[in-house]
Structure formats: C-alpha cells, structure tokens
Write a protein that binds this DNA or RNA. Structure first.
Lengths: 222, 222
DNA sequence: GTTCGCGTAGTACCGCGGTACTACGCACCC
DNA sequence: GGGTGCGTAGTACCGCGGTACTACGCGAAC
C-alpha cells in the first residue's frame, strides 16, 4: 500500500486525483494540501510515501515546497505534476530534489506507474521531457567511463601524471602545482611536458580542454 | 498503428515479445531479427516505427546496431531492452542515439507505454535507471541558463569579446584566432586582455575554464 | 645485480602570452 | 560639434611556459 499526499491549489483538481487514486487498491490518499506551506507541514505530519505536487500555486510554489520537504530528510518522495512542460520547471524541480516530473495530461496508468516508481525510490520523467533532458545530458556528460576509459592516451598516463593533469585542468600554474604538491617547479615542468606528449597536446591549454572532455576536470568554485 | 521490429538473439524471447505485442491492437510486429547486422538491414527494409533492441547479442551487439540505425537517419526509433541495468550499457545506448532504455523485467503496460512514447519521438528510461541518470545530470549540469545567464561577467562582454572567448575556449592561440577572424594579432591581444579583465581571469587558461563552466565551450573534435 | 619505469631535479634557451600604453575610424547619441 | 562605446592596430617589455637535454634515487622485475 502506497500512501499519497495530494498538493494542488485547485480543489477540483485534488478531487480528480483523489478519485483516480481511490479507484485502485494499491494507493491510499492520506491527505490533501492547498498550498506549499500546508504541503510541507502535512508531509512532516503524515509522512506519506509520495507527495503529488503541483508546481503553480499561490504563496510558496511547488518547487520551493519540494525543496523544503527534501531538505527535511523524511522518507517521502515528491512527484511533481504540471500542465506546462517548461524546461525551467523541470530543471528547477529536479534540482530541488524531486523524484519525478509528469505532465497532468498523462494517462492514468502512467500516473499510477509513476507513483509506484517514486514510492520505492526510483525516478520518473514524462517521456516528452525525457527526450530534451537526454539531449542535454548527451551534450554535457559526453564520455565518462565509456570511451574515455578506453582512450589509450589516458591509460598511458602514470598516476602522478594524471594528478598533474588534473591540477593543470584546474588552471594552476606550474609554480602553484609545485607549491601544492611540494615539488620543485622543474619537476612539475617535466611532468607537464610528459603529459602533453602523451595526450598529444601542444600546450597546457589543450591539456585543460582534454581534461574537461574526459571528465578529469569538473566545474569547481576553485 | 505502430510498426515494430523485434531484435533478440533468443527465439524464445522474441516469441514472448511477439505474443505480447500481438495481444494489443495498437502495435504491429512487422519483423524479427536475431543479430545486429540483420537488425540494421531489416530496419532499412521494413522501416518500422520502433526497433525493440536487445543489448547483448553475438556478433554486432545492440549498441553498435543502434548506432548504425540512427546514423542511417531513417524514421525508426530504437528502444533498447536489457536484463542488466549496468550504467555502461545505459550510457553507451543513449550515446549511440537510442530513444529509450527499459529493463526486460518491466511490466507489460510499461513496455507498451514505452513503445508508444518512442514511436512519436519521445524518450523513455526505466525508473530504476532514471534516478541514477538524474543524479549525474544534477552533478554535471548545475547552472546553465539559470544562474549562468545572470552572471554579470558574461553579460558585460560585447559580442566580439564573446566570440573571442569562445575561440580561446577552443584552445586557439592568438595567432590562430587572428588568422581565422582575419585580424592582426595585436587586436586579438587587446580583445583577450579585455575579456580576461572582465571575467576576472588572470590568464587564458582560466578563461578556458570559465568558458567551459558557463557552457560557451563544448567538447569538439576541433 | 642489472635493467627498467617512475618520480624527482636541474640548466639553458626561446617564444607566446599578458600588460601597459597610445591611437584611429566609425556609429550613435545628445 | 563633442562625447562615448566599440573594434581595430601598433610598440615595448617581461615572465611564464614549453623543449631539450642530463641526472640521480628507488623499487620492481628479470
């Protein structure tokens, strides 16, 4: 049995979901909320398996409520529902910690499957959105552990050289690397030179690019 | 009516899928294939809406076959099926251009919903995998077009300066930039200097990192 | 014990990159 | 007309980065 909390500012909408979920034996609606603050409170109180969350609500919206619920660290998973498939909503919801994102025009069985999935800790995304998400994903997470690991240029590096490459990827100068690794600048130069030769880069800039493309360097606040 | 090509090296498995798809009116199995090469050939010949593709097959595997099919540029969408939810498979399949990735232990209605979705150009991912995909997604695509666009350092750049920054992000030297933009190297230096000052980078290396972190530079084969 | 890979370190040299200036043409706005 | 922002271009200077060497200690492999 999966316990569900329905959050939507429109009573009629809540009623519709309530009817749908009551029509199947596996879900049990344990409460409703009409705005974000109430959703956060009732989640803490009722501890439902799944929170069915509308995005657009007066006052605290669904995204913010999701963030609060996730931050509270309970066992409830949030499944966000919306009428509009705006990318910003999707991004914001997922970043807020939502376990799923479905459109309100989803077919009933899709919604039920989604509730089932997030209840056990899985995640679901509306197919129409998944496509765009994957395109971005493919653009930004290009090569990890797939072709990158096979790249002979990477595997030919020694452990030390890989450390140096990572440091170069952070934008450190030879002097900085020497200081942080407690080495002489000459040694760093030797290492860098060997790294450049092995990965086929003509200067450290290409090495930085190489590091990013192969997942050795990551966006940091460094 | 959705036309489907079933690809699996095990006849019994194909039979099972065939039975399932025949049990509903909306799908029409137009063919079967026992290995990757046959899948590629029959896809070109039968032009099905959806190719149901097994990953593990002798000879050309499902990933490679998917790559060929997608590269061929037909209207067929590939839905990859596998028994094992190995991350490498998921990554490889998505990078190969698959429109979906489901586990073979999916419930029949989930599979049908998946076929329906990819047939119209959407994408689906098994809930169990979506979760991990989202975690990576959140790690690697943290800021784009949300806070990045608001970054005053980026908006303060003129159009020309942004072009220069992109070029620097590609790893080009001042001389190369000058040649490709048909400018003198002095001018390039002036631009680069202004860019560095505006984004707060001490050298072009930090500019490259800045460009990557803000989505101006992307993995290229350049 | 000798060889080999690896990490360490040094010297010498040269060129690209970055800075600090100045300067001019052009479009645009008062 | 004068001011302003932008793109263009130049000179001069210095330092970091990259290359080409050589060299040594150490552990593992043979």
């Amino acid at each position: 049995m999966t316990t569900v909390l329905i959050v939507d500012d429109q009573p009629l909408q809540r009623y519709g979901f309530h009817l749908l979920l009551d029509s199947v034996p596996e879900t049990d609606v344990v409460g409703e909320a009409g705005h974000g603050a109430e959703a956060v409170r009732k989640t803490a109180e009722l501890r439902p398996d799944v929170v069915l969350m509308d995005v657009r609500m007066p006052g605290m919206d669904g995204i913010e409520a999701t963030r609060c619920i996730v931050a509270a660290g309970g066992r409830s998973h949030v499944l966000v529902l919306t009428t509009f498939d705006l990318d910003e909503y999707v991004h914001a919801a997922l970043r807020a910690g939502a376990s799923g994102f479905l459109l309100k025009d989803a077919r009933p069985e899709e919604l039920l499957a989604g509730i089932r999935a997030v209840a056990v800790g899985d995640a679901v995304i509306a197919p129409a959105l998944t496509r765009r998400l994957l395109e971005e994903y493919a653009r930004y997470v290009p090569s990890h552990r797939t072709d990158a690991a096979e790249d002979p240029r990477l595997t030919s590096l020694t452990d030390r050289e890989r450390e140096i490459l990572v440091a170069v990827g952070k934008g450190w100068t030879n002097g900085e690397i020497a200081a942080r690794f407690v080495l002489s600048e000459s040694t760093v130069k030797t290492h860098v030179g060997r790294v450049l030769a092995k990965i086929g880069a003509r200067d450290r800039i290409q090495a930085v690019i190489f590091a990013y493309d192969h997942g050795l360097a990551r966006p940091t606040a460094d």
